[in-house]
Design a protein around this nucleic acid. Structure first.
Lengths: 177, 177
DNA sequence: GCAAAGTGTCAAGCAAGCCTAACACTTATT
DNA sequence: AATAAGTGTTAGGCTTGCTTGACACTTTGC
């Protein structure tokens, strides 16, 4: 416990993307993926903020070469697509870990993941992904591990279930030993 | 993937404590635990910010009943001690999961945990704690699980090690079967 | 005892990121 | 053609949380 956290706490805002920027880019990415043309006011509606705020943020994102605006239509640069996909992966990994493995309710898992997705380092993101992939594999040792975890740590009514036990049961079905 | 994240993204700042407040309280807690008397300028030195900034923040924390100031000496209220201990637990749990189980370097684990500790819900914090406690227990199924995980997912030179394999080996020693 | 150092406090300023108000311009509607 | 609705843009304001400068008061050192 003698790690000097005081050295780290200021790094909170030293991220590639701020929380705000992250959600602009994620939103833009999601809409563009549907094949739709995208303008500022759509982002405003989607994020629930004013057109003016979007306008200002887009100007900054454009200066940072993260978005392009042409004829009022918005596209993402290659580098920001990479950033967005990395962050979306981190979010998804966290959600799976929290909800599928640890049994946290989906809405809580989604909220928490949404808050921290842009703060997690690539190193941690990759380690989490590997771990979750392993936990989702149908190895015997994983199923035994999960069953034992469920047995001791998740108090759930077997009649009702808890979200997690259903996952384990369905994994078992795919892995008849 | 059709979860509406746009509903959540604004909750980023709706936390009991901001990142800044969190680190004020954690710092105050740590110093008081050493039994030392504490004044504003000490916090300034510890956090690496100006006395003026500390002064303003302490005024706000005092209004929120999170700290008490008497004769320029600072103490924590009962409610903020509870908050601090909860957050410190979340941080510690995350650090253990990342560094001991997933093999992320300690400095990365510390930085990431420091950034997200105050954003994680109590529900997620408790679920993570249970999971880490289980992973640290000396159950046979846990050791097998960790060994298999290490085998497939952690490329490390057995001569040098990776931080994680050492943990597993030491767990094995305590669990002669 | 007196200068130097440490401490608390107020003021003004800055950056991020939001807000509302106001205005210009372009589409739709009728 | 005329009014309404949608969109982009600028300007001023607010909050959080930091900064530096200036000033007063209290310790400490010689």
């Amino acid at each position: 416990m003698n790690f000097h956290f005081e050295q780290y706490w200021k790094e909170y805002n030293d991220n590639t993307l701020s929380h705000s920027e992250t959600h602009y880019l994620l939103t833009i990415y999601a809409i563009l993926q549907k094949g739709e043309q995208l303008r500022a006011s759509t982002i405003a509606k989607e994020l629930g903020i004013s057109r003016n705020a979007v306008h200002l943020q887009l100007k900054k994102l454009n200066e940072k070469k993260l978005v392009r605006v042409k004829d009022n239509f918005i596209t993402l640069s290659k580098s920001s697509i990479e950033l967005v996909e990395k962050i979306a992966n981190k979010r998804q990994t966290m959600i799976v870990l929290l909800s599928e493995v640890l049994g946290v309710p989906m809405s809580v898992a989604a909220t928490d993941s949404c808050k921290i997705e842009h703060l997690i380092s690539d190193e941690t993101g990759e380690a989490l992904l590997k771990f979750v992939q392993f936990l989702r594999s149908d190895r015997k040792v994983v199923l035994q591990f999960l069953k034992e975890y469920q047995k001791y740590y998740l108090q759930c009514d077997p009649e009702i279930g808890c979200g997690l036990c259903e996952n384990i049961h369905s994994m078992e079905k795919n892995n008849e030993d």
